[in-house]
Amino acid sequence: MQLIACPWCGPREELEFSYGGQAHVAYPSDPAALTDEQWARFVFFRDNPKGPFAERWAHSAGCRRWFTAVRDTRTHRFLSVGPLAASGSGATS
């Protein structure tokens, strides 16, 4: 169980956070214009690298704010954290 450095609250226990998967997958500007393949790609397909991975996390049991992080999936360790980009960091569900 790691300490995760929330950009707003500082280091907190991993238990307080929830995972949001790959970052920077923007919602399509015009879903209706997409083919079924393109839409499926957005809905279901996410990168799954072995190594550094840009992700979204939420400090759910703390400030409840979302942020982005780069984490190495080989070691599970966080390499950096930062606030969300101004727009389109990619909600997924």
Binding site: G21, T75, H76
Partner: peptide, 13 residues
């Protein structure tokens, strides 16, 4: 475990 990982270890909680 909730997050992606290839590390062959999980969180103890």
């Amino acid at each position: 475990d909730t997050y992606n990982g290839y590390g062959q270890r999980g969180a103890f909680h």
